[in-house]
């Protein structure tokens, strides 16, 4: 009798579970049927997530390999004065190319999205976009920055900015979205003055008023910039 009762309960549970799955499946199917949009989105988003994971893993590998190379070069430099001289020269070039961490006095620029509002140009003016970041980076370099990082990504001599609809792609990194932190090492007074110049970043200043985008500049006594962790290849360039 007790066995039959247990069996009965199990059957009821199984039927109830199956009903639950069927109901959920039906609701899902109803959501998907009109255009199958969600399923397509899911597939695309999954692809993006997988690619971002692969991207992060590759960048970590590159950083680790550069560190290994640095250590091996350091060990070789202990044995030869020629190697030591070459290593010092390369260390300076690497620092200027953004391949090593640096620190020093500087500024931090925080850029935050504004409030959605109608935009006559059909643009998404309340979002911080890649051109805003490009403009701020250019102004900071013009104002004497010796090194810059954006959202933890170091800027190199070959850096490019791209993206769309509030997404900011820097070099080979995955996209960033606001809030974005731009950090620069250099002469704080000059960089402050460059950013404060009303003609410096006219589009951003205009959108600060229209969409309440916020651009905050803070002086920092000692900021640290990470080393560049992506590709810096020039396969088409030859030197005479």
């Amino acid at each position: 009798m007790a066995r039959n009762r247990v069996l009965g309960i199990l059957v009821v549970a199984a039927v109830a579970l199956a009903t639950g799955f069927l109901v959920a499946g039906q609701v899902r199917a109803q959501l998907l049927t009109p255009s199958n949009q969600v399923a397509r989105y899911q597939a695309l988003v999954r692809s993006v997530q997988d690619l971002v994971k692969a991207n992060e893993s590759s960048r970590a590998k590159i950083a680790s390999l550069r560190s290994d190379i640095d250590a091996l070069e350091g060990a070789a430099a202990q044995q030869s004065t020629t190697t030591r001289a070459l290593q010092n020269e390369v260390a300076d070039l690497r620092a200027h190319a953004g391949l090593t961490t640096i620190h020093g006095p500087g500024v931090q620029v925080d850029l935050r999205n504004g409030t959605p509002a109608p935009d006559v140009n059909g643009q998404i003016g309340y979002l911080i976009n890649y051109q805003d970041i490009q403009d701020v980076v250019n102004i900071l370099f013009a104002g004497g920055a010796e090194g810059i990082s954006v959202g933890g990504r170091r800027i190199t001599p070959l850096t490019s900015f791209s993206g769309s609809a509030g997404q900011i792609v820097i070099d080979q990194g995955p996209p960033l979205t606001a809030p974005v932190k731009v950090v620069a090492v250099g002469d704080r007074n000059r960089m402050f003055a460059a950013l404060e110049d009303p003609s410096a970043i006219p589009d951003l200043r205009d959108r600060e008023v229209r969409f309440q985008i916020t651009v905050t500049v803070t002086g920092v006594p000692d900021v640290k910039l990470p080393a560049y962790d992506s590709s810096l290849q020039i396969p088409h360039v030859s030197t005479p």
Binding site: I62, P175, S231
Partner: peptide, 16 residues
């Protein structure tokens, strides 16, 4: 975005 990430990942693989 997927297209950009594919190209970026290829560059990163070449660098590695």
């Amino acid at each position: 975005l997927i297209d950009d990430l594919h190209r970026a990942n290829d560059s990163l693989a070449a660098e590695a």
